[in-house]
Each structure stands twice: as structure tokens, then as C-alpha cells.
Design a protein around this nucleic acid. Structure first.
Length: 269
DNA sequence: CGGCAGGTGCGGA
DNA sequence: TCCGCACCTGCC
């Protein structure tokens, strides 16, 4: 199925038009369920009043909030799909992550054509259960083949209930995700925030992010990780990951219009 | 050509 | 609980 979402509103009266493309008629129930799922995935019913109330005056955040008021964080991916991406992002450069993802899509994805677009649909966990690790390695995913294979099996066997995790707390969800082979602290924190919308999911920082936050918060090249985390906690409390995301997005948006020399050095493709 | 990248599991202190 | 180490691959 093809899904197209278009902006049809204003900042104060937001509206999204949803167009669905399918090769069979869709029941009203299915369409409703789909809309509801999209509301969850893109966090459309988020109430950000508390966030603006608590953090709106922060000098680091204010300019970003000004430009991005109303921005939500979500993911178009299901939990399984996000995990596939997270595994492929580990311990490598973006360029190779893209290459690995493309190889997986070419082999296991389904081509979807709609609205003058030619896209690739995700595979299902079941599609990988009969695929050997060796076959995956031939797609140049390296040692990640083991994680990809075991996670697919885990989902296919129903050993994790992605939907019920939406109603549980952050720590419980974290522990559940850490049961997955190949999923460690870095992947977990991204997922807690982007997939499960825990706005406070910021207790781990990777080296490249550490350098960026050192600049943004301390105007220095490198502060210790625990110093950065403590500062973020003090500044933004339970909203710290959401606030950090606003600041991060704003930084990369600025980079599109004007060069940010210190940032260029930190980005490797 | 060795080092290293948007991590993680594992074994041993 | 904390640390050092190996690990596919391809770019620098």
C-alpha cells in the first residue's frame, strides 16, 4: 500500500491530507485503523504545552523552538523496521549503512509504485527466517548478519510484542529491547525516543554527538560525556531528549543555508 | 596499508 | 559492574 501525507493546514490550525494507494478497495475500518497508526507513529496527538512551559525560556532552545514550534518526533518505521536500520547503522559510516540497506531491500524488499513514485517496501521478519547468516553476509553486512538473522527470528516467533510496549514505561521497554541480540545502549536510546516517544530518553551519548553538544552547550570542543548529560538533565529535565532534538534539527537546518565550519569536520559520509 | 567509523557481545578482572 | 578486545567492510 502506498501512503501519502500532505500539509494542508497552518501552524495554528494544522491539517494533514492522507492519500492511500492500494490495488484493492479498502474498508472504512482499515482506513481508520491506518490513520490511527499514523497518528501514533508521528506523535500527532502530542501535547507540547508542558514542554514549552518548562523549557521555552531556555536561551539555547528558544531560537530552535521559535523556528520549529509544533514539531514532533516520530518514525515512519515499525519497531522491527527501525531495528533493522539501527543494526545497519552500527559501527560504520553513513555511506556504508546506505549500501547495506540497499542490498537488503534489493534482495528482500518489494517494489511499490504509486503516485509517480517507485519505492521499496520493507520485508517482514518471516521473510528472513529461512535465510542463512552466510547468505546475509554476501550482502556485505559483515558481522551484523548474526544480529539481523536473530532479530528477525525473535519477531517471527512472537517473542516480543511491539504494540504492548507502547503502553509500558521507559525502563521496562528498555529492558525488553536489550534482550535482542545486537541491540545495546546506543540503539535502545534512539528507539525509546523515536519509536516510543519517551521525551526523556537521553542518558547515553555517543562520541560524535558528544562533540556536537559540547559546542552547542559549552562552546567548547569536547566536554566529558557525564558533564554533557548532567547539563542536559539540569536544563531540560524530563523533556531533555525532545529539547535536544529541537536543537539538533535546528543546527542541521542552519547548515543547509550557511556553512557551519566546526560541524563540517564532524560529519563523515 | 593501518586506522577507524553514528556499537555490541563476550570473557575476565 | 567495569574494562579490553574482536568484529565485516570500505574509505582516508
Amino acid at each position: 500500500m502506498g501512503i501519502k501525507m500532505s500539509d494542508r493546514g497552518t501552524l495554528n490550525e494544522p491539517r494533514i491530507q492522507l492519500d492511500l494507494f492500494a490495488n484493492r478497495p479498502l474498508s472504512a475500518d482499515l482506513v481508520d485503523a491506518l490513520a490511527e497508526e499514523l497518528v501514533w507513529r508521528f506523535d500527532l496527538d502530542a501535547n507540547l504545552a508542558g514542554f514549552i512551559e518548562a523549557c521555552g525560556d531556555d536561551p539555547v532552545l528558544a531560537p530552535a523552538l521559535e523556528r520549529w514550534r509544533g514539531m514532533r518526533v516520530g518514525s515512519s518505521y515499525s519497531l522491527y523496521e527501525y531495528l533493522a536500520v539501527a543494526i545497519v547503522l552500527q559501527n560504520t559510516t553513513v555511506r556504508r549503512s546506505v549500501q547495506m540497506m540497499q542490498a537488503l531491500f534489493d534482495r528482500f524488499g518489494s517494489r511499490v509504485t504509486f503516485d509517480d513514485r517507485d519505492l521499496c517496501g520493507f520485508w517482514q521478519p518471516e521473510d528472513l527466517t529461512s535465510v542463512s547468516e552466510e547468505e546475509l553476509r554476501q550482502l556485505k553486512v559483515g558481522y551484523r548478519a548474526k544480529s539481523i538473522s536473530r532479530i528477525a527470528k525473535f519477531f517471527a516467533e512472537g517473542q516480543i510484542d511491539a504494540l504492548s510496549l507502547r503502553d509500558r514505561g521507559r525502563e521496562e521497554t528498555k529492558d525488553e529491547l536489550l534482550r535482542l541480540y545486537g541491540v545495546g545502549p546506543a540503539s535502545v536510546w534512539y528507539i525509546l525516543f523515536e519509536v516510543f516517544h519517551h521525551y526523556d530518553a537521553f542518558d547515553v551519548i555517543s562520541p560524535w554527538e558528544q562533540k556536537i553538544y559540547s559546542r552547542l552547550l559549552f562552546d567548547s570542543e569536547l566536554e566529558a560525556a557525564d558533564v554533557v548529560l548532567e547539563e542536559v538533565r539540569k536544563r531540560w529535565g524530563p523533556w531533555r531528549m525532545l529539547a535536544a532534538h529541537y536543537v539538533f534539527e535546528d543546527l542541521f537546518w542552519r547548515r543547509r543555508n550557511q556553512s557551519v565550519p566546526w560541524l563540517e569536520k564532524l560529519i563523515r559520509l
